[in-house]
Amino acid sequence: MSKAPKPVGLYPLARKVGDILFLSGVGPRIAGSDANDSGVPGLELDHNGNFKSFDFEAQVHSVFANVKAILEENGSSWDKLVDIQVFLVDMKRDFQTFNRVYAEYFKNIDPKPCRTTIAINALPTPIAIELKCVATV
Rank of each mutant, 00 (worst) to 15 (best):
L88W: 06
V89K: 12
V89H: 02
V89T: 01
V89G: 10
K92D: 15
K92R: 12
K92A: 13
K92N: 14
R93I: 01
R93T: 07
R93P: 05
R93C: 05
D94E: 06
D94Y: 08
F95P: 03
F95W: 01
Q96V: 11
Q96W: 10
Q96P: 07
T97A: 10
T97V: 09
T97G: 11
F98V: 02
N99E: 10
N99Y: 12
N99H: 14
N99L: 12
R100T: 07
R100P: 00
R100H: 01
R100A: 00
R100C: 00
V101S: 15
V101R: 08
V101G: 11
Y102R: 08
Y102G: 01
Y102Q: 09
A103Q: 14
A103H: 14
A103T: 07
A103M: 11
A103R: 12
A103G: 10
E104Y: 06
E104D: 07
E104V: 02
E104S: 09
Y105K: 13
Y105M: 15
F106S: 03
F106P: 00
F106V: 06
F106T: 04
N108C: 01
I109F: 10
I109K: 04
I109C: 09
I109H: 04
D110H: 03
D110V: 01
D110N: 05
P111M: 06
P111E: 08
P111T: 02
P111F: 08
K112Y: 07
P113W: 13
P113N: 08
C114A: 15
C114P: 00
R115Q: 14
R115H: 12
T116P: 09
T117P: 01
